[in-house]
Design a protein around this nucleic acid. Structure first.
Lengths: 343, 343
DNA sequence: TTTAATTTTGCAAACGATTGCAAGAAATAG
DNA sequence: CTATTTCTTGCAATCGTTTGCAAAATTAAA
């Protein structure tokens, strides 16, 4: 199958008639080794076509140089930007990224965590699944002293650092915006409220309604899985209401876009009849017509900051990092045509 | 830092007063080992909180159970779906995915390939960068017998398997569609023609024009990097032409969406004034107004098939796979409102 | 020249599992 | 009761590097 077997430092040592340890040191320019010897080693390595076996080296050093990433779902612009940021930082720091998805299942998430543990990742980055309600699967990491960073979908009061944005505040602001644009019946479409991101957005929404004395009733909340068909189904549901809302706050742009599109197709004018706001600042929000009011969720930065923070912990966490428990990135409401009702 | 040190099979062996090899075998239910002994081993492992060190095991077995993935860019719906498919297949087969991006740079691609090699991935999945013109960085894999699968951005006449769609045919079909809808001046907006995906689409476009006797001139081709601002810039350029096109074939949906949006904002009617077609069937194509005519590029399947094919090669490539050099997945033009000019 | 200081190199034990081979124990046959 | 066969278990080498410590070689100091 695989051709001739790999060249190792042993081969180099034998050819040069020197010891393995000298080769090992020479290869990494250890000052103990004579310049000429180093050169000879390099030449021979080159000549034999030697490729360092980092794998073996890592084994000996009990370090894998690998960061585990568990995400809820590998889907769409948001998550790919986030991974982009992570990969950039990790790659530059010489770490590899092992990526796996829980597909919103706690079971899968546990299995993935186990695999990561067994594979001895140096650190873990995780965004929780819909139904994760316990961090039992993360504890082994903590116990072994493997740093864990939570991002986006986090757990309140968890050990380890969380990298997030202020979902509550943004939801509050965007709902308030809809209210000040004159909306008096604002519906909220979101996903499983067990997860902080959705729970917080919902809380912000409710609080804004309350602060402005707008009544809320259960039929103003639609829970779904944020799939395309869910957005359309939500629109359909709204179309069939006798007393339609005049404002819509949807927890994700993609879903908002589908919903808005379907509403428009059925004669609803946006924003005149219904003002709409989304969340994430997905590119889709800038290509729908009218452009979608949304919240700028800096996905790339979340990824980059999470990775940076993890790596700095691995490099002997300065006390500053040690103490940190939550990193909240800047984010803000972006008002566009989909919600501008006043001239 | 890290608490107490790991429990190993040595610890289990010592505690149970049996040999290491027995523990090793017992842990994996080797039939040689007595049932009772196996049970004792499992219990003790459980009790001590043992976590198999796959890393060490892999080292000994000279197998990493890891697949390297090098993509051009971690961005957007297309690539995340593709990775989704890969992750699913890989995960189910017990493989980890190490993902890195070349960011469209050959240099980075080479560096990433080197890292993958040094990390002894069992196989490689790669989509080439814009400016990759040689496979020198891939040769070491071939030489070592490490299987390589190219997907999406491939190289003609390469060793290893390619998983792609028929870009030429789809581009031909979609251009032909624009022509039959009555377009007589069709522009093409695409990216670096060095890459097969763009080159083939261009070729299909040109061929269709030719077959239908539509003249082509250099100003009908716009090359850019497929970023949002590029889409807008292209629209701007078109707006300023004295003799505007009546058809537009853009090599990617996201870019098409930006371009179309900007044209619309400047009073161009779609499809009446200009019919537009994209590529990829990105969700964005279904939320823009009018919906975008496009080519269904089954990203998820590409990823899944690429991973499946790689893994089957690792599992002792049946001769069927051995001989395969190119896997072309089904794909087809999806006609929507953005190009429907006839009633 | 001797001795001390410095520079280079090598020995050998890790790292945590796997595995071919052989030996001991138990069961079956003759 | 011995000879076989079948189960179970253990020995020890191995995977490719790293690294503490000691030894050898070279250079500098006296």
């Amino acid at each position: 199958m695989s051709g001739k077997k790999d060249i190792t430092i042993v081969d180099i040592a034998r050819e040069l008639n020197i010891s393995i340890s000298t080769v090992s040191r020479g290869l990494k320019d250890h000052p103990d080794i004579n310049k000429d010897t180093r050169q000879k080693i390099w030449n021979k390595a080159e000549q034999l076509g030697y490729t360092a076996n980092i794998f073996a080296s890592n084994f000996r050093k009990k370090k894998t140089n690998t960061l585990g990433v568990i995400i809820h779902r590998l889907h769409g612009y948001f998550i790919s930007s986030l991974l982009d940021g992570m990969e950039k930082v990790a790659n530059e720091a010489g770490y590899n990224l092992i990526i796996s998805q829980s597909r919103e299942s706690y079971h899968k998430e546990m299995a993935n965590a186990k695999t990561m543990l067994a594979n001895r990742v140096d650190g873990l980055l995780i965004s929780l699944a819909y139904d994760t309600e316990s961090l039992a699967h993360i504890e082994p990491f903590i116990n072994k002293g493997i740093p864990v960073i939570f991002f986006d979908r986090v757990f309140e009061n968890s050990q380890g650092v969380s990298v997030i944005i202020d979902n509550y505040k943004n939801a509050y602001d965007i709902t308030k915006h809809l209210i000040t644009e004159g909306c008096s019946k604002i519906m909220h479409i979101t996903a499983c409220l067990k997860r902080n991101v959705y729970a917080e957005r919902y809380r912000g929404y409710r609080r804004a309604l309350e602060d402005y004395n707008i009544p809320f009733s259960d039929d103003m909340l639609i829970l779904n899985d944020m799939n395309p068909q869910d957005g359309i189904a939500a629109a359909e549901k709204i179309l069939q209401m006798e007393n339609r809302p005049d404002g819509l706050f949807i927890a994700e742009d993609e879903n908002a876009a589908y919903c808005m599109h379907h509403l428009k197709q059925n004669g609803v004018r946006i924003p005149e009849d219904i003002a709409i706001a989304g969340f994430n600042n997905d590119p889709i929000s800038r290509t729908v017509d009218p452009n979608l009011t949304t919240v700028n969720y800096p996905a790339y930065d979340i990824g980059a900051v999470a990775a940076t923070s993890l790596i700095s912990q691995l490099n002997g966490a300065s006390s500053v990092v040690q103490v940190m428990n939550k990193i909240v990135l800047k984010s803000e409401v972006i008002i566009r045509e989909s919600s501008r009702r006043k001239k």
